[in-house]
Computed example of a mutant assay.
Amino acid sequence: MIRVRGGKSFVGTDSPEIPQDGEGPAREVTLADFGLEAQTVTVERFAAFVQETGYVTEAERFGWSSVFFSDEAHLAGASAVGSRLPWWHKIDQSTWRQPEGPGSTVEDRLDHPVTQVSWADANAFAAWVGGRLPSEAEWEHAARGGAEHKRFPWGNAEPNDEIVMANIWQGKFPRLNTMLDGYERTAPAQSFAPNSLGFYNMSGNVWEWTRDPFRIRSLSKPARLRNAQALTHSEKVLKGGSFLCHISYCYRYRIAARMGLSADSAASNAGFRVAYDI
């Protein structure tokens, strides 16, 4: 755990790249000091939690979850979760133990972020270790290294298909991943250079659940409709982007970027890290 000094800070940006996500405008916040784990919760730690408590995740209870596949067979298949996103598929028995469904395993990924965990699953683990999920403002403050204006955890330098700064997509999404960063899917939770405070992978790798409900602070009609949808589905805010993000498709590995997802959802690119009151 890293102790983060609070005080006056901000959340969001006055230069949003994806305005419909509610990235802006920036708003001032005052934060108390808090603790945040340097890395996301790993498969190994989550397995210990399950072993001790007998916890059963929501994906295990539902019997399926969402998995990314970009090969032609899957893209042309009928199992796509939605026609707009044909690379996402409803896969039976995809759980934290087998994130891509039957035949996959985490035995070679014990130091990787645990995935296929819902918001409730993340909260259950956090409570077990005496912590909680971070707020969106806390998450951004830690990712920036304080009340600094930074686009990414490392600064403002833009990663691309030749310059590796984090575990994001390189190539042409979704059919060509050159894996210049060395990973097709997740990377170890403690990989790539940490930010100025010592936090790993706050850009890319896996989306991270926060404790906050997803809302867009705007009076526009589209925002009102999106907020109503988010409320109906109990959506929560996730931060950081994932290994699937690319500037041409999902430019959400920026600190101010955000995503809303129903609290009972789980996916092969979503995990979490634990915060603590101090």
Rank of each mutant, 00 (worst) to 15 (best):
S79W: 09
W128Q: 12
A122F: 02
I91R: 03
P86G: 12
G77S: 13
P113W: 00
W88S: 09
S66M: 09
Q93D: 10
W128C: 06
W128A: 13
V67R: 03
S118I: 05
V129R: 13
G82Q: 06
A124K: 06
A124C: 14
G77L: 02
L85D: 12
R97W: 00
S118W: 01
V106C: 12
L85E: 02
F68A: 08
K90R: 15
W96T: 03
T95M: 02
T105N: 11
H112C: 01
S104Y: 02
F68K: 10
P102D: 10
A76V: 08
V114W: 03
R97M: 01
A78Y: 10
V67E: 07
D111C: 07
S83Y: 06
W88V: 15
D121H: 10
P86Q: 10
V81F: 08
Q116L: 06
L75M: 15
V129E: 11
L75N: 13
I91D: 00
T115E: 03
L110P: 06
A73Q: 14
S94I: 01
A122E: 05
V114G: 05
K90C: 05
R109C: 03
A78V: 12
R109F: 02
A78E: 15
G103Q: 10
F68E: 00
S104Q: 01
V106G: 03
V129C: 15
Q116D: 12
A126R: 04
S83P: 09
D71I: 06
V129Q: 14
A127F: 11
G103I: 02
A73C: 09
R109N: 00
H74Q: 11
A120K: 03
V117E: 01
A126K: 07
V106A: 08
W96P: 01
V106E: 06
A127Y: 03
W119F: 12
S70A: 14
S83R: 13
V67D: 02
W88E: 11
S118D: 01
H74S: 06
D121W: 02
N123Q: 11
V81W: 10
S65L: 09
S83K: 12
A73G: 08
Q98G: 08
W88L: 15
E72W: 13
Q93M: 03
P99K: 04
I91H: 06
T115H: 00
Q116T: 06
G103T: 10
Q116Y: 13
A76H: 10
L110A: 04
V114S: 00
A127I: 13
D71Q: 03
H89S: 09
P102H: 07
L85I: 15
K90W: 10
G82L: 07
P102G: 01
R97G: 00
Q93P: 04
W88C: 12
Q116E: 08
G103A: 11
G101A: 10
E100R: 14
R84P: 04
Q93V: 00
W64E: 14
I91S: 08
R109Y: 15
Q93H: 14
W128R: 09
H74R: 15
H89K: 06
D111N: 15
V106L: 04
I91V: 15
Q93F: 01
A78G: 15
H74E: 09
D71Y: 06
T105F: 04
S65Q: 05
P86V: 04
H89R: 11
D121C: 12
L75Y: 13
G101Y: 02
